[in-house]
Design a protein around this nucleic acid. Structure first.
Lengths: 155, 155
DNA sequence: CACTATTAGTTGATTCTTGCAACCAATTTA
DNA sequence: TAAATTGGTTGCAAGAATCAACTAATAGTG
C-alpha cells in the first residue's frame, strides 16, 4: 500500500531514464528526430489507416500538435500527406522509403536500449510488469480497443 | 523479448494516464501547483538537507529548471530559501506551514489516484512491478544511493 | 432539398518548459 | 596566493503545448 504513493514518481523517474538513454543514442547516431516523432512513425508504419485525429487521441495530445509534428516529418520527407478520396476532409499519412529506413534504424536503437535496461529481469517478471502497466491504463479509462491498437502496432 | 520494443511507449502512456488524473484532481481541488512541484515539495519535506543541486540530480533536470521551480514555490510562500551559514554558496530550502499543509493535501490526492489506478492488482504483482521499475533505473545508471534516497523519502 | 451540426485539419497567438552558456560569489585545491 | 571547482542565478533561444478561431467536407434532420 505504501508503494501506491510512489506510483507517479517511480514511473516518471523510470521513463526519464529511458528517454535520456534514447536521446543520447539518437544524438550519437546523428538522428535528428525526437522520441515523439519516432513514436508517430512507429504508429503510422504499423497501421497506415491511422489519421491525425487517431494519433492525437492515442497520444492524448491536441490535434494542432500532431499537425505540426507531421509537418516536420513532411519537410524532411519521412512521410507523405495525401487527401483521402472517399472523404476529402481526412488526410492519409504514408511513410516514404526514407522514413521507413530511418524508422528501422530507430527501432533498432530502441530495442538495444530496452534490452540493456531490462537485463536481469526474468520473462515472468517482465510479463507481470507489462500486465500491471496495461491494468493501470485500463483503470485510467483508456479504452481497450484504442490502446490495444497502439500496443499491437508497435510489436 | 518482443515486449522490450514497447518499453518506452508503454511507460509513456501509463505515466500520461497518471498525470492526467492528477492534473484533473488538482484542478478540481483548486490546487495551483504542478506535479513536478509536488514532487519537489515531497522530496524537501522528507529530507530537509537536500539542496538545489541534489534536486537537479535526482530529478535529472538542469539546475536552472530547479531554481525557477523553487522561485515559483517561493513566490507562493510554500517554501523559504536561506543561505547556509557554513557554506555561503549553498541555499537551504525549508517548507513553510502553508507548504506543508498543501503537500499533505496533494499526497492525499496522489494516494487516492494511485489506489484507483492500482485496483485489481495483487500485492505480489505490485511488488514485482516495483522491483522491475527499480531494476530499470539501476540498469540505467541511476546510483542506488541517490535513488533509494528519493524512494525512501516518499514513503 | 436546405439548414444545421459535426468532423478533420489548419493556423495564429501566447504561454510554458527546456537546454545551454555565461556569469557571480564562495570555497577548495595546488 | 592563484587557479579550479562548486552552488546558484540569469538571459536567451528553441521546442512543446494550449486555446480559440477558422475552412472545407460531410452527416444528420426536418
Amino acid at each position: 500500500m505504501e508503494s501506491s504513493k510512489l506510483l507517479g514518481y517511480m514511473l516518471g523517474q523510470t521513463l526519464r531514464v529511458f528517454k535520456n538513454q534514447m536521446v543520447s543514442e539518437f544524438k550519437e547516431m546523428e538522428i535528428e528526430l525526437t522520441i515523439e516523432q519516432f513514436v508517430i512513425l512507429s504508429l503510422l508504419n504499423s497501421n497506415c489507416d491511422l489519421i491525425q485525429r487517431d494519433l492525437a487521441s492515442q497520444l492524448q495530445k491536441d490535434k494542432s500538435i500532431i499537425v505540426r509534428q507531421i509537418n516536420c516529418l513532411l519537410e524532411n520527407q519521412y512521410v507523405v500527406r495525401l487527401t483521402n478520396k472517399d472523404d476529402k476532409r481526412v488526410k492519409n499519412l504514408i511513410l516514404t522509403k526514407k522514413g521507413f529506413e530511418k524508422l528501422n534504424q530507430m527501432k533498432e536503437i530502441a530495442s538495444e536500449v530496452s534490452g540493456k535496461l531490462l537485463t536481469g529481469i526474468s520473462e515472468n517478471e517482465l510479463e507481470i510488469f507489462q500486465n500491471v502497466l496495461l491494468k493501470i491504463q485500463e483503470n485510467g479509462g483508456i479504452e481497450e480497443d484504442t490502446f490495444n491498437c497502439g500496443f499491437n502496432q508497435l510489436k
